[in-house]
Design a protein around this nucleic acid. Sequence first.
DNA 1: TATTATATTAACCGTATGGTTAAACTAAAC
DNA 2: GTTTAGTTTAACCATACGGTTAATATAATA
Lengths: 206, 206
Amino acid sequence: MDEKGVSSKGAILAAARKEFAARGFSGARVEAIARAAGCNKAMLFYYFSSKENLYRSVLAQALGEIFAEIGGVVNERLTPRSFLERFPEIYIRFLARNPDLPRILVFDLIHNPENISRTVGQIFRENASFNPQLLLGMIRTWHDQGLISEGDPMHFILNVISLSIFSFVGRPMVEAISGLKAGEDEEFYRARIQSVVHTLTKGMLK
Amino acid sequence: MDEKGVSSKGAILAAARKEFAARGFSGARVEAIARAAGCNKAMLFYYFSSKENLYRSVLAQALGEIFAEIGGVVNERLTPRSFLERFPEIYIRFLARNPDLPRILVFDLIHNPENISRTVGQIFRENASFNPQLLLGMIRTWHDQGLISEGDPMHFILNVISLSIFSFVGRPMVEAISGLKAGEDEEFYRARIQSVVHTLTKGMLK
DNA sequence: TATTATATTAACCGTATGGTTAAACTAAAC
DNA sequence: GTTTAGTTTAACCATACGGTTAATATAATA
């Protein structure tokens, strides 16, 4: 694959990510993706064979990046406090830098959860950037040692992820309800991280 | 408007809610909605004039129901503890009974936040089922009295809503990560409510 | 019964869209 | 310099889709 080929395929993937994030699968236009990638529509089918397949590639890439980022936080010698203090910051900052990812993710969680399951399973099989069993085991140990109050790892993780990821989705909702503007992005994320970390550490650490 | 007319319009709205929730705006098919409502496609345009307009009606109705439910929890003599103990239960149970609502809501929060803002504003103007300023004022008072640790009402509400609503969206994600099945719905919601209430009360009450 | 307003249908229409094809261009490989 | 494999394009195709129309049915009203 020569230089032009790489950049074409890459450009299509990048453009597709934006388009799918902005409009969802059905709303995304193959033509628009090709144009944004600076190439012909046929080019897109040449590399990805179908819209569906292009979407799968985008999703797999996005989930891969997310898990690589998460994997960086999870290691053998993690205390529950350092996990709860560091995870939300890293995760929220990462999603703020890559706003297309939570959109694609949440969209699929709602409309195509099996899609997520399959792709996540595939990533864990192929890519060792993050070992979920390691995290699950640690959470169980933390609870056995009396360090945390939540005994079910699923709810522990759900609490952490909910507060982190919904910062993005829920912001316009709460702005609409309260009539307040949440302020500039940087200030909003700073305050959000602080609130999430405080609530999680105070709420789940024993 | 005669009996048949009422039921046609209502049937279209109900079918549209399901279709939009399942496939999003662009993925939803006008034809499919009409068929599910037991009537002709032209009937739909007769009552709602466009797909867009039908969607707006569905969204307004959905948000109306949500705020009516929330309004039931918020009243003058609310302590922060009773709010944090009761809200997640009522909200999660309500969304579990009406699974289409969080789907439509989250979909629009991602792809059309201005839509949400406009409709929410409209509901507050027309319908007095829930007064957000009352809740905001209470949260500020609670903080002034030293009852809660989160001083910004926006983050207070965001924490509560995140943990409640993301229970639905995030479940397949966490199932995929952990490889665990979350169990039967009823058991899952029971445990989820308990975890959310515990985390919120312990995390945000002083 | 004639009138009128609302409800409902079948048949159409224009276009946007995902996908195809066949040919041409590019640049190594031999 | 010819072959070959990969890359790119313009033009095309079938159909699915949102929306329209004009005619008809229904039922209340005068």
